[in-house]
Simulated assay, not measured.
Amino acid sequence: MSDAPVPQVEQGWSSGYDRTLFRFLARRVPSRRVSLAGAGPVASITFDDVPESAARMGAPLLERKGLRGTFYVAAAWCGLQDQYWRVASRSQVRAVAEAGHEIGCHTARHVNVQSLSPRDLARECDRSRALLGEICGADPRHFCYPFGDVGLAQKRYLARRFVTCRSIYEHPNLGRVDPALLGAVGLFDATYRRERLLALVRQTVAARGWLILYTHDVSPDPTRIGTSPRLLEETLAVLADHGVPVLTLTDAARHHGLEPG
């Protein structure tokens, strides 16, 4: 990785009236509506930013169960230290991909997409695609909004480019969904309640829906937005007990008819 300084980009949740309005419109105006068509429920385990602990502990834990996850990588940040953790290195991301996990796009530099024009967002995604191609040969078809922030114009562009775009709006995906703004539920030790997880899983089973869970670091002492191996094991056990298979975003999208097989 180059030692050249990384250009500053907008970080964090957007503020201001215009950003709030465009975020509201992104939630209310669907890119399209698609009915989930799978014969049964599915779940996906996803990792945002991909701290090195997610690659070192999260991926192998899934593998031991015969499962695979989706790792949303901000490729220009590989190997860098941020506020909470060191981001997985290029070699770690490559190893995750070679183990059969899916690599998704999280922009190249973990940019708040509301701060980008559609043209600049296209360049950011092009750079991400080029970097991930260099690192592990990936050409991501699934996107995750950094910080969970999204505007209407940016969502419309990303809806044309990716099969799905994942938010942090906390709900399972049931019935008719907007593939450019899929819901996801945070899996964090700091806020975990078993009763809530059971309710979400049962709701997903009843509606034959798609429950996407997301986290960041995986550690015995995780950050407030991370998961312990114990909690990840417990979550997988709950899903297995309810007969909910764990699939990558690509396989779950195919199961529900969002992407051709």
Rank of each mutant, 00 (worst) to 15 (best):
residue 204 T to V: 02
residue 205 V to A: 02
residue 190 A to L: 06
residue 175 G to C: 10
residue 191 T to S: 15
residue 167 S to E: 07
residue 159 A to S: 15
residue 192 Y to I: 06
residue 184 A to G: 13
residue 174 L to A: 05
residue 207 A to K: 12
residue 191 T to C: 12
residue 159 A to D: 15
residue 209 G to K: 06
residue 203 Q to I: 01
residue 163 V to A: 13
residue 201 V to L: 03
residue 181 L to T: 00
residue 209 G to V: 05
residue 177 V to R: 00
residue 204 T to P: 08
residue 192 Y to H: 15
residue 169 Y to S: 14
residue 186 G to Y: 04
residue 208 R to V: 06
residue 194 R to I: 02
residue 196 R to S: 11
residue 187 L to M: 11
residue 185 V to D: 03
residue 191 T to D: 12
residue 165 C to L: 03
residue 165 C to W: 01
residue 190 A to G: 08
residue 166 R to F: 06
residue 208 R to L: 04
residue 184 A to C: 11
residue 163 V to H: 01
residue 185 V to M: 09
residue 170 E to C: 07
residue 187 L to G: 01
residue 173 N to P: 05
residue 204 T to K: 08
residue 184 A to L: 10
residue 195 E to M: 02
residue 169 Y to N: 15
residue 206 A to R: 13
residue 179 P to A: 05
residue 185 V to L: 07
residue 178 D to N: 14
residue 179 P to I: 09
residue 187 L to W: 02
residue 196 R to N: 07
residue 163 V to I: 13
residue 162 F to C: 02
residue 166 R to D: 00
residue 185 V to T: 05
residue 209 G to S: 02
residue 198 L to M: 11
residue 191 T to K: 14
residue 160 R to S: 09
residue 203 Q to Y: 00
residue 185 V to Y: 08
residue 183 G to F: 10
residue 203 Q to G: 12
residue 189 D to L: 13
residue 193 R to H: 14
residue 197 L to R: 04
residue 159 A to C: 06
residue 205 V to T: 03
residue 175 G to Q: 09
residue 170 E to H: 14
residue 173 N to I: 01
residue 158 L to M: 10
residue 160 R to A: 10
residue 190 A to D: 09
residue 210 W to C: 12
residue 208 R to G: 01
residue 191 T to N: 13
residue 195 E to A: 14
residue 160 R to C: 12
residue 210 W to E: 07
residue 158 L to D: 08
residue 161 R to E: 14
residue 174 L to S: 08
residue 171 H to C: 13
residue 198 L to A: 13
residue 182 L to P: 01
residue 182 L to K: 04
residue 169 Y to R: 15
residue 190 A to F: 05
residue 210 W to N: 11
residue 180 A to K: 04
residue 201 V to P: 02
residue 204 T to G: 11
residue 177 V to W: 01
residue 199 A to W: 00
residue 180 A to W: 02
residue 200 L to A: 04
residue 162 F to A: 01
residue 178 D to F: 05
residue 169 Y to F: 15
residue 170 E to I: 15
residue 181 L to D: 03
residue 164 T to L: 04
residue 207 A to D: 07
residue 198 L to K: 11
residue 179 P to V: 08
residue 174 L to N: 03
residue 201 V to C: 09
residue 184 A to H: 14
residue 202 R to W: 02
residue 169 Y to I: 15
residue 210 W to S: 04
residue 169 Y to L: 15
residue 158 L to V: 06
residue 183 G to I: 13
residue 207 A to R: 12
residue 207 A to H: 12
residue 178 D to T: 02
residue 177 V to A: 04
residue 158 L to K: 09
residue 177 V to Q: 00
residue 177 V to L: 09
residue 199 A to K: 02
residue 169 Y to E: 14
residue 179 P to Y: 07
residue 205 V to R: 14
residue 173 N to K: 06
residue 174 L to P: 03
residue 196 R to V: 15
residue 172 P to Y: 01
residue 192 Y to D: 10
residue 186 G to D: 02
residue 185 V to K: 05
residue 185 V to G: 07
residue 158 L to S: 10
residue 163 V to D: 05
residue 159 A to E: 07
residue 189 D to K: 14
residue 189 D to P: 14
residue 163 V to Y: 05
residue 187 L to D: 04
residue 208 R to A: 11
residue 171 H to K: 15
residue 195 E to H: 06
residue 199 A to H: 04
residue 197 L to S: 10
residue 182 L to H: 04
residue 203 Q to P: 00
